[in-house]
Simulated scan of single mutants.
Amino acid sequence: MRQNRSSKTTQNNKSSKFKWLIAIVLSTLVLTIGGLVLTNNLFTNSASSKELLVLKAEAVSVQHWKVPAKQQSISSAPKDPPGPAAGKKVVYLTFDDGPSIHLKQFLEVLEKEKAPASFFFVGNEFANGDKETYQRMIDSGFVIGLHSYTHNPKKLYRKKDPTFISEMSRERDDFERISGIRTNLIRAPYGSTYLTNTQVEQTKQNGFRLVDWNIDSNDWRYSPGNSGAVYQNVLSQVNAYEGSNEPLVILFHERKNTLDALPRVIKMLRDKGYVFQAYHENETLHQNFKKDPNL
């Protein structure tokens, strides 16, 4: 009798444990299916939920969540600071006052020649460009910088309430809003010569990186159709650096005569042994009229 009772008790215990196991499995399945349905609804029925999840993914780095490439923010500066290629004669082509109606033509020439360059845009000219073109520039190895909103020295450098810093800050924010690209690279209209010591310090404090030039094409002086004068002016200045390994930073503008002269200029520089690089905001080369290694 004792053996029978013991046997029945054991069987009852086993049956009870089995029932609990089934209950746990079923509960897990229900929760999993419910979670999948909820997640699907979040991604298919709510755009704001998508954005929220992406923001969480970017913020909670400890989880190592990966944001799809198309949703990642774009930066015009590489993580590793670039600099003039060791043992090479390096030239940086830079173009001011865009985006202009000629921008895409400039890009076509530079892409064909495999010559990356840096462009400095004026805020009041943003309407001449578009987000797709800006994205194309970054993807192709070009760099986009800022060149103030008004390009007006009477406002930028006036003694009372100069607008240099405020215009650059506004332009940085507005360009990021319309393009998805945040850039800290700037060029002062007419050069940093006009900046006061206070403005130089404010430039640094606001996280900007400024670059001037050491060769001026003076292309703005020449009328359309006079591309030969642009070429000769650049050639004479490049020749002055003959025998020097000093990197060249050439100032151009988005003008038709510059566009026409560009293929000849690139060929001339290449024939002289120069390699082309784009000037980035974390460039190790500091080229500015203030000769400031921290600007």
Rank of each mutant, 00 (worst) to 15 (best):
T39M: 15
V234R: 01
K267F: 01
K17F: 10
A240F: 06
F95L: 14
V91E: 07
D139S: 15
Q72S: 06
Q63H: 07
K267V: 12
A261K: 03
V54N: 03
F106T: 13
P263T: 06
L259K: 04
F120E: 04
D173L: 09
R187G: 06
I33C: 10
F164Q: 11
K267G: 04
G129K: 08
T32K: 03
R209H: 02
Y222I: 15
L36W: 01
F119R: 03
S100A: 14
S244N: 09
V234I: 14
N124P: 00
G34H: 02
Y194T: 00
N206E: 12
K154C: 06
G129N: 04
A188L: 05
R177W: 04
N233I: 01
H286P: 01
M268A: 14
K291S: 09
W20R: 11
E132V: 05
S7V: 07
P293K: 07
T9Y: 07
Y274Q: 01
L269I: 01
R172T: 03
A57E: 05
P68H: 13
N4C: 04
K50G: 01
I101E: 14
T183E: 09
T10F: 13
G207D: 06
S46W: 05
K114W: 02
Q202P: 14
D292P: 07
G145F: 03
R170F: 10
Q3R: 10
T193N: 03
K131E: 15
K56E: 08
T44A: 05
E281Y: 02
F289Q: 03
H286W: 02
V200H: 01
R255E: 13
V60M: 07
T284W: 08
R264P: 07
S16V: 03
P82D: 02
H151V: 10
P224R: 15
K66C: 02
A261M: 12
N12I: 13
Q205G: 00
V234T: 03
G83W: 10
F18G: 08
G87A: 06
V200T: 06
N288W: 02
Q237F: 00
P99Q: 04
F95I: 08
S169K: 08
F164H: 06
A57Y: 11
L93T: 00
A261F: 13
S6E: 12
K8C: 08
F164E: 12
S227W: 11
V122E: 12
V230C: 13
D212R: 00
R2S: 10
N233R: 10
F43E: 02
H64S: 12
F142N: 06
D212E: 05
N282V: 02
L195I: 08
G243K: 07
L259D: 09
I22T: 14
K79R: 04
V91C: 08
L26W: 04
V37F: 09
V54Y: 14
G225E: 15
E242S: 09
Q205N: 13
